[in-house]
Design a binder for these strands. Sequence first.
DNA 1: GTCCAGCCACAACCAGCAGTTGTATCCATA
DNA 2: TATGGATACAACTGCTGGTTGTGGCTGGAC
Lengths: 311, 311
Amino acid sequence: MDLDTVRTFVAAADAGQFQEAAAELAVTQQAVSKRIAALERNLGVRLFTRTPRGAELTIDGQAFLPHARELLRAAERAVASVRAGSRPLRVDVIASRSAASGLMRGFHRAHPEIDLDVVMLFNVDTAVAAIRSGAIDASFRAVAMPGRPLPEDIESVRVLDEQLQLLTGPGHALASARSVPLAQLAGHRIWMPGVVPGTEWAAYYDDLVAEFGLTIEATGPNFGSDALLDTVADTPALATFMGEQTRLVWPAGHGLRRIPVTDPTPVYPHSFLWHRDNPHPALATLRAHLAVTAAGTGAAGTWVPDWAIPR
Amino acid sequence: MDLDTVRTFVAAADAGQFQEAAAELAVTQQAVSKRIAALERNLGVRLFTRTPRGAELTIDGQAFLPHARELLRAAERAVASVRAGSRPLRVDVIASRSAASGLMRGFHRAHPEIDLDVVMLFNVDTAVAAIRSGAIDASFRAVAMPGRPLPEDIESVRVLDEQLQLLTGPGHALASARSVPLAQLAGHRIWMPGVVPGTEWAAYYDDLVAEFGLTIEATGPNFGSDALLDTVADTPALATFMGEQTRLVWPAGHGLRRIPVTDPTPVYPHSFLWHRDNPHPALATLRAHLAVTAAGTGAAGTWVPDWAIPR
DNA sequence: GTCCAGCCACAACCAGCAGTTGTATCCATA
DNA sequence: TATGGATACAACTGCTGGTTGTGGCTGGAC
């Protein structure tokens, strides 16, 4: 199906005759007639009843019309999403199920009129470069990698400290614990196959391991969170870390447990990054929204790496 | 833009390489390459970064991808709206702003998973013929025209009595009345340019006029409800009838008044019509919904034409 | 009753595009 | 260094989709 054909159909339906639609689209009446005929052949139904005074919609045509309009609107939005100027606000998040996605969902609920596009970049360096180049407008990330401060023209504000929890199956030694001190995890196997070297969150877990003597295995291919949950649920000796706000498709009957970690509670510090000079109007709205809704950060009894604390 | 091209883009994005996408779409790799290149040329942005191991999305490509998927879904829905079997439930209403539209909106809110298409046919005869032919699944109408009973295979249930109100401008003699007896309207000019001869609602107003000696002018072209409201608001001697549930785009500052009519209150009897043997599953759901939400009908002190009372 | 205006469909023709085949190039890996 | 796997470019071809020209139908004016 061709969108020009759909556009022709809508124009003909609006005009009530092929001739006027043809003039509007700057083609001949015969071209409109052929396009409509082809569309009818493709769909297998008659869309217009031709009369000597024009063409009026059949019942099928009436039913099709709103869908055709929606199709054209969707095409318009798709093109707008990559248009150079005045495109939707483009925000980078770590993962589709991360806490940042939750913040963006909240923003969308509060401002449904603002068009958004969400992308996922490799790491904070890539995100910063994309912000500086204008390819994206903002990013939710831990603000910096070890030894690499943010450039001058990038602004940041820490918007959310997400507590890390231990996720275990029902047979795990800690399965029935109401909470577990961080130091007590030293002897347990923690498996995180999704950690990608070179990312700021890999650096986060490196620091966590180094400072508290944990054992995190990142070995093995990452088959996705479903496979991870399956394995953790079935293997008593295995556990994994998970952000408190991570939304999982929780397979029924797995008996997975989320166990808070204490003394200290490791938290993942989500910051909001944007370019000092970005004039996108929706960016200001998003910043204002985050200023209101963002939970407190830097609470007592929590741990973050030194390098992850913004200036 | 061509939907095949969009489909190709999505397939390539999912596969991560052109070759596999080409196999999936049963074309050559070169064709995929050319389609993507054309799409990029049209949009003016690069969607993939080509590598010797495949192609991965650029930031623009990531932003475009969900819109592309939505576009394909919209196309799928558009095609489904006219598909012979298992198409969306297709319901006929008198007008887009009628009470029946309100009922359908309520149904859609209660069952957003059910696909609906709303069409507007000429009159109840056309609607009944469409129901019998299977072109539509149901209709909201006053059940019959004078002297023409419903066919055996059409079922109907009266679902809503909509009170008629008098709509006047601020300068009208009855503008400040809290209500007005029907007989008292005999001397006033009531203007209804939208009434189309041959429809069951034209017959309704004919009966109303005949029984209570009213004067309804249907003369003049119908320029739409906006023009009607403008004229009524500006002309002290003019009033019009309007269903109580009719939603109007109320121009500010017009000072229009809705005045209830009494002794008796004329009500427009919306019935729900469907074919005895229609197996569409959503039809049963809609009937159940209407049975619960439909307001009482046939209240004392109201008037409807004899012929409009279903058997 | 006849004629004309207005609109749509069909036929013939033509250009350009989309697809195929063939080939060059690039890069990671063995 | 050779090779496999991936993309891009070039040349060719068939078909799609446009235009021009023409005919048929119908409703209203005369």
